[in-house]
Structure formats: C-alpha cells, structure tokens
Design a protein around this nucleic acid. Structure first.
Lengths: 376, 376
DNA sequence: AGTGGAAACGTGAACGTTCACGGGCTGGGT
DNA sequence: ACCCAGCCCGTGAACGTTCACGTTTCCACT
C-alpha cells in the first residue's frame, strides 16, 4: 500500500480510507461499491461492510467530474401554494425522473424574491431551467449562457424555449358560451401576481351607472377597467385578450367592467362584493382563474344572487378545486400535467440537439378547453 | 503559456479554453469569473466577454470537489397533486433556500414508485433527505448511511429525525366537539394512500341496522369497520386513534361505522352515499382529511341532508380548499408550513451536530388544532 | 537611478473518483 | 516444464476547479 490516506483534516471518509481499512486499493473499493465484475464475492462483502462502518459515501462531485454530468434541471415556481402549480411541478418531476434527470426546485414566492433570484440561485447547480419567471426570460437566459431555459406564460425573448397560452382562443370560448345564453352585462375579474404587490383598488364606475360617456358614441362597446398603477386597464395578457374579444363579440350592445385583485379567493370576494353593489345588473363573470372564481361565487352568494340562474361564472385553468365548489365551476381548463410534460419534451429536444434554441419549433402555444359544469 | 487546452474531445468549454482564448492563466480566469480582487477591471471584462462567447460554464463538480459541498437536501413527496403537500414542500424549499441549501425534489406518486425508490433516486445527489416515505424509514436510512433522514408521519425506526402527529389529541378535539353538541351516531371515513392500492369496499353493516350483535353486550360501544384487506378495522393510525377515543368517550351509548376509500373526493362521495343509504341515522362524520371531507359534504347533499343541521362534518389537516366549500369546513388544522420549517430546523441541528441522530430530541410530535367554521 | 511595495498575474498541488491499463496468481492443457 | 487463459487486484492518469504560494510588472517616492 503506497496510498497514504492519513493526516487529513477532512471529516468525511474517502475511498482511500475504506481501501486502507480493508487492505485493498482504490480500484477494488470502486469495484465493490459499484457492483462491477472482477472481484471476489467475499472481498466485495468485506469492503461493503467496512464502508458501512466508516460511513463512507462516495463524493458526488468527484464522481460527476470523472463520469460526466447526469443532467439536472432547475424548476422555478412562484408559489407552490397556488393550486395552479402543483400539477405542473409534479408532472415536470415525473417526466424528468423518467429520463433519469434530477430536479432542483425553487419556490421563490416567499421572502420577496422573484424569478430572476430563483434562476441565480439555481444556475450554479443545473444544466437547464424550466420555470414561470414572470417576465425575466431575457435576463435569466443571460445568466444561464448556453444552457437552455424554458419559460412559461411569458414573452420568450432570448429564452431557448417557451410555452405560452392562446388566451385569445380561451376568451373566445368563454365569451361564446356567455353570449350563447344571452348574457348582456359581463365583468372580467383580473388579477396581478403577488410579487408585484401593486395596490389595486376598485373605483366607482360612474360612467357605467350614468349612461354613456361623452367620449363613446351611444351604444358602442365600452370597456372600463378599475385599477390603480396599471398602465392600461387590463394588466394581464389574459385580461387584454378578454377585453379584445369582448369588444368584438358585443360590438354595440355590451358593457364590461373589470376589477383587479391580488390572486386569492378572499381578495376576490370583497372586490366583487363591492363591484356588485355598484353594478347589480351583471349577469356573467369571467375570472382570472379558478381561485379568483371561487371568491366570485362567494361574493355572488353574499349578494343573494344565484348561480347560474342570476349570473353565470366561468373560471380559468381548471384546478381540482373547481369540482368541489357548489355550484361546480365551469372553467377554461388547462391540462397542467400536459404542460409539464411538454416543457420537459422541449428541453429534451434542446439538450439533445434535435431542437435549436430560440427556433420557431421551440415556441409552443397551448390552448385552454371549455369544461362546462354547473356555474355556466 | 505552458497550458495546453487543445486536443480534447470534450464539448464543454473549460476554464483552460477561456484562459487560452483570453491569453491569461487559469487563476486569472477564476478571479474574473468569481469577482475576486487582484485583477485589472479591463482584464476582468475582457475575460468575461471571452467566457460569454465560448459559452463557458464552470463545472459544478470541479467546484464542489475543491470547495467542499454546499449542502443539498432531497425532498421526497408522494404526490404534489394532493393539496396536503404543497404547503409543506413550499415551506421546506423556503427554509432551505434561506440557509443557502438547494433542494432536489422527487414526487414519487406516479409510475408505481414508492418512498424507497425516491430515496434511492435522490441518494447519490444529496447530503440529507426529508420526506413522507410511507413506511420505509428503516431501509431508507440504511441507504443513506450516516447522512441524516427526517421522516414524517411514520414510525421513525432508525431514521435520524422524525416528525409525527398526535392523532390521539386530534381525535379528542374532534370527538369532544361532536359530543358537545350531542351527536350520537358518528362515522369515521378512513382512507388509504394510493400507492398501496388496496381495493377496499363497503359492505352492508347488518349488525348496526339489526340491533346488537350477540358478541357485544347490549348498549356497549361498538366499532365496526368495513374494509377488505385491512388487518384491523381502521387501517391508518389516524383511524386507530379515532376508534380508541370514540370507544372511551361514548362508552355505552355509541355506534361508529367506518368506510375506507382511496384518498379522493369522488371516491369518498360514492362511498359515503352508500353508507348513508344503509345508516341514515348518522349525525356526525369525521373524515380522514379535508379532501375526503369534501366528498362527504357532497354525499350528504346528495342524500338531502343539511350540514350542520342534520349532520356535522369535521375534516382534517386544514387545506385551503376547506374555506372555499359551502358550508365552510370545520377541520383539525395542521400548519403545514410550520411542519416544513420544523423539519428543516431538525435537519439543521443534525447537520450541525447540535442534535444527535436518533435521539429523543430528534423525535418531534406536532398537534392539530380545531378550527371551527360552519360544518361543525 | 534606485528602491520599496503594492497590484497583477502565473504555477504546483490538491480535491475524490473512475478509466485504461498492467501485473501476479491459479489451473488446466500440451 | 511450458504456455496461455482467466480471474483478481493494483497503479498512473485524467476530470476541472480553487488554494496557497511565487513571480513579474508597475508606479511613486527618495
């Protein structure tokens, strides 16, 4: 034995410690630990026993250095507590595991961090990132360099891959439904992501109560948003899509009002309660998502309105909660497991080289699907 | 330059490639990339530019090897889709991130894997594991060797740390509540974890409809469970705790019946519907968790029973869903963020050496708290 | 011009493992 | 007695980075 594992300050046992203790060489220990051939069964067992006693755990760094990396993907999610994300995260983990990848996860919603912080935190440890970054696609891709980034629900910018949603199509589905049953006064309840922390408030929509505004010709479509701090009325791309489709569909005979609240049922409840007090005639409400829609249902109940008799309600994204509500929520459903699967497939293509970063094929657009239940 | 980065087959650019391209040495590149002092600003910028062009990303393995590992913890979770887990997972990630740790996550619920598979998958990449393993604490700790394992809701066995729950206390809270308002016929709706896939079915409880059984003296407490494949009536520790407390509290004047279903609202709904058809007199139901309780509410509604007027319902674990139901669900609430935080604190103690693996201090017992809302 | 000293940069060594060899032993055949 | 094959085991090299030094460059002050 010319190997001298002695005299080190390291706490961890190394392969040399095991080799010395068992009276063999490094390579033999490697053979024993990794079930390789070319070693006597007796020796193998003795070495494994010694390793167990010493509490030896192979260094993942040394292993990775010599063997070449197993791929590990970072998963950045704003808030696992939001029922939208678990199905997505679960699906990503499942798909990654199937490919033998590992997933390093960051839920950046707490502690005032944002999507960029998450990517900075993940970057040193991963070969790629998938995530809802909320607008940092460009900067995040810069941090990652050549390593692929898949962003979701966001302008891709320089990101290697992206999955976005056809909100225009979703809006057409929902409004088609409401229009079909004759709704005439529709409200859209928008929402902003918590990290932005914009203090949005509802203002009295005088213009809607007191007839037409001077600026708009009598009977023309009219879209009014109540929200402070938003550069335009509808702050989200969801909201914008709805506004556009509403104008087109109801040209001439429609009024829409919108409130923007933080993404939670209780916020939504109080906001919509106030809205209903000001505009009792509303007979159809589309919500930013099912969580917000849940608050809408409560608010309608508070106001003594029955769903769907007095007012229809349509949610969005189709989280499991919707089925448990009464009335069961009609929603624009998104198969979030499919979204996760698709994201991993995209990444697989990018890592494998069959897909070019930033190419048209790496930009996918997914569609919502109308699931009709009781509320509309 | 005696450094010769040429003639390698490696795809990835190494620090030597950057050094050669920039006409400097390894160490200078290191200084540039890690914002260390002792380098001219101009040189630093030039190197960073070169690194960007070459798509250089430092090898996390080489870095980890020489610098000593940043700790990374594995997080094993049966099913993120189950609303019980996201708050826990989110909290673990938050706490770990605060300490500068990274979290490698495995959601092992899909594809027929179990908690042991998850630990095997995580083991090569992590310094410790936190997880709901569903009964594999011993074998998992064996795989991890000296590296600490924190198990939740499970007999700790040889695991370094553990968090369990005082189901006895929870049962006392719930039954105390029901007893206080005079419930006389209580059902407990139990559940088994999906991975077990035990086919449990409801059988007609003749003994409860047709008076006393011969084996039990008239009027004595009687606990009947309907479930095939369970060695005893109540298959879960939650169920066992409830059975015990029910017997003691209602000694002489009580009848309890239980069904065991898979953990889902729809399964629960059909199961309880059948149960109510057989035993219409039930006036209080405690459910395995809020998801199951949600199905119970639906079943009661199906049967024309009003909650809480005709029958009280108490859920368990206090997931956000409960507040959105109508009636809002009274539940035995668990602060899952606190559970996650506590798990990480335990791990912190174990890694730091201030806590001994397997010691009494590394075994924590947390309690549920009764949150009274509308359903009871 | 000489000198001191800081700033800028370079070089051997080490981290812990696997890969690609190479060597010794054993046993069975000619 | 010799050789060869097959098994078992050991040794140098390499993976890519940082650490701890050592060396050079540069400037200011005497």
């Amino acid at each position: 034995m010319t190997q001298t594992p002695a005299g080190r300050r390291s706490q961890r046992a190394t392969i040399l410690d095991v080799a010395a203790a068992a009276g063999v060489s490094r390579q033999t220990v490697t053979r024993a630990m990794n079930d390789m051939p070319g070693i006597k069964t007796e020796t193998r067992q003795r070495i494994q026993e010694v390793a167990r006693e010493l509490g030896y755990t192979p260094s993942r760094f040394a292993k990775g250095l010599v063997q070449g990396a197993r791929t590990s993907v970072g998963l950045a999610i704003p808030d696992l507590t939001n029922p939208y994300f678990p199905a997505f995260a679960s699906s990503v983990v499942e798909q990654a595991t199937q490919r033998g990848w590992q997933v390093v996860m960051d839920d950046y919603g707490h502690g005032g961090r944002n999507g960029l912080d998450a990517v900075e935190h993940l970057a040193p440890h991963v070969d790629a990132v998938i995530g809802y970054l909320g607008g940092y696609a460009g900067q995040a891709q810069a941090i990652l360099g050549r390593r692929p980034l898949i962003v979701l629900d966001e302008e891709p910018g320089s990101a290697a891959g992206a999955i976005t949603f056809d909100y225009r199509h979703a809006a057409e589905l929902a409004i088609g439904r409401l229009q079909g049953v004759g709704c005439s006064r529709i409200a859209y309840v928008d929402s902003v992501r918590a990290p932005e922390k914009r203090a949005l408030e509802i203002r009295a929509p005088e213009d809607l109560n007191s007839g037409n505004r001077p600026s708009s010709a009598g009977g023309s479509a009219e879209t009014v948003a109540h929200g402070r701090g938003a550069d335009d009325g509808f702050v989200t791309s969801r909201g914008r899509a709805f506004a556009a489709v509403l104008e087109e569909s109801y040209g001439g005979a429609f009024r829409c009002s919108a409130v923007a609240v933080e993404e939670s049922a209780s916020e939504s409840r109080t906001a919509v309660r106030e809205l209903l007090a000001l505009q009792p005639g509303i007979d159809g409400i589309v919500a930013f998502n099912d969580l917000v829609a849940s608050g809408v249902l409560k608010a309608l109940s508070d106001a003594g309105k029955r769903v769907p008799e007095d007012c229809l309600v349509i949610g969005m994204d189709g989280i499991p909660l919707g089925e448990q509500l009464s009335p069961e929520l009609t929603t624009l459903s998104l198969d979030l497991r499919e979204v996760g699967r698709t994201a991993v497939e995209l990444l697989d293509g990018l890592l494998g080289g069959t897909l070019a970063a930033g190419s048209a094929e790496s930009r996918l657009i997914l569609r919502h699907r109308l699931v009709v239940r009781q509320s509309a």
